[in-house]
Design a protein around this nucleic acid. Structure first.
Length: 103
DNA sequence: AGCGTGACGGTCG
DNA sequence: ACGACCGCCACGC
């Protein structure tokens, strides 16, 4: 498993859903590689919807990454649900690979 | 080779 | 529920 696998997973996240760094890392066989996943995002090709990757608390990336409010707008535009405190509602919007057909 | 750093996460008080 | 702490891991200096 390599960072290419992470990119592939990110490319699968549908609009309106998000995944966490730790989640991605675990899926590619690095259970303690959350930071590794984050680094992968920093080096990710622009095509990748890396704005759909957030931390385990539902917080977005620091403003200096995408620019002030940018990631927020992107997610809002896609229909991601935010809590009153400004965090993403992970309970509703976390993307679970393979669970799509499990209604 | 050693040390500090960070788009993180789980635990503990 | 929240903040403080510590542990991980790859990178750059």
């Amino acid at each position: 498993m390599n960072e290419g696998s992470i990119y592939q997973l990110v490319s699968l996240i549908p609009a309106g859903s998000v995944m966490t760094y730790g989640q991605l890392a675990a899926l590619v066989g690095k259970p303690h590689g959350a930071r590794y996943a984050a680094r992968a995002m920093a080096a990710a090709p622009g095509e990748l919807p890396c704005h759909r990757v957030i931390n385990a608390k539902g917080e977005l990336a620091p403003e200096h990454i995408f620019g002030q409010g940018v990631q927020r707008q992107l997610l809002l535009a896609e229909g991601v649900h935010f809590l009153p405190d400004g965090r993403v509602d992970l309970r509703r919007c976390r993307f679970l690979p393979g669970a799509a057909d499990r209604i």
